[in-house]
Design a protein around this nucleic acid. Structure first.
Length: 277
DNA sequence: AATGACCACAACCGCACTTTA
DNA sequence: CTAAAGTGCGGTTGTGGTCAT
């Protein structure tokens, strides 16, 4: 079956965009908004692939794009986030207002990545590690080949010892449900009552590992994360970044979290005072 | 001045995931 | 439920600028 290409490449312009093309694209998006990229070129009168239009807009023409050099603060945050997230550029970019994933990726590849490799190489030389070991160490542990996306779904995690009572009451393990209506009565973010959480539900007397976990990814309680994975310990060890990664791995593995619902954690992790822009 | 190496970054490409009909 | 369309992501390539020789 396969899928049709995003556009027929015949008769389309490629390469650098001209000022006129930029203007046409900007005018069209101002008038009609973003989206429908495939049809956009035809409607706007551009001889470009829809993908190309999207990329041009997102990485260059958007009014909120921040131009100019990456500041030291931004650089530090990029390094920190890269340690935690690996090559998930869009997520990293999401923490740097006005910066695009492409820009950060390029910056990393041309500056930071090289610098870090050198740094690790020198570290490893000093400890006389074999070259292949040194290479492995230089690679971020948390890298995933593709960013996991998370729609507004509930994560159901049922361990090998499923809890039939709870499962049978409403649904099977493979079902999803409206998390808004099934949110356990856990604390709200910022709620001082952090003792009870959906992750360590003492009321049901079941461990996090054996419980069915459902929570609103948009309203994920930091307290739950803190309770679940000894967050304070991790922070205490922050001079060595390995615990950061381990914490993430633990959350992802045991809680079923991936990076989008992890935003709250990142907010906390990067610190409000480090927000830029 | 010519040219080759290197660098920065815009743009492209293929794939995966989500949404829609 | 499924196929196709739409979209987003990360890796890679192409190209123009700069610098050293």
């Amino acid at each position: 079956m396969g899928r049709s290409p995003c556009c027929s490449k015949e008769g389309l312009n490629r390469g650098a965009w001209t000022a006129q093309e930029d203007k046409i694209l900007c005018d069209y998006i101002k008038a009609h908004g973003e989206g429908r990229w495939r049809n956009l070129p035809k409607r706007a009168g551009l001889k470009r692939c829809g993908k190309s239009c999207r990329l041009r807009w997102l990485n260059y023409l958007r009014p909120d794009i921040k131009r100019g050099n990456i500041s030291p603060d931004e650089e530090e945050l990029i390094i920190r986030l890269h340690k935690l997230l690996g090559n998930r550029w869009s997520l990293i970019a999401g923490r740097l207002p006005g910066r695009t994933d492409n820009e950060i990726k390029n910056y990393w590849n041309t500056n930071l990545g090289k610098r870090h490799q050198d740094h690790h190489a020198s570290d490893d030389r000093s400890t006389k590690l074999p070259l292949d070991t040194a290479k492995k160490r230089a690679e971020p542990v948390a890298v995933r080949t593709k960013a996991l996306k998370c729609s507004k779904q509930v994560f159901l995690k049922v361990s090998r010892a499923e809890t039939p009572d709870r499962l049978n009451s409403n649904q099977t393990s493979s079902e999803t449900r409206d998390h808004q209506t099934n949110m356990p009565p856990g604390p709200n973010p910022g709620d001082s009552n952090n003792g009870q959480s959906s992750l360590t539900n003492s009321e049901d007397n079941i461990s996090a590992d054996d419980s069915m976990l459902d929570f609103n990814i948009g309203e994920l309680c930091l307290s739950d994360l803190l309770n679940f994975a000894d967050f304070s310990t991790s922070l205490a060890c922050s001079s060595d970044h390995q615990p950061d990664v381990m914490l993430y791995e633990e959350l992802e593995t045991n809680v079923g979290l991936n990076m989008h619902p992890f935003a709250s954690f990142l907010d906390y992790y990067t610190g409000e005072d480090q927000w830029l822009g």
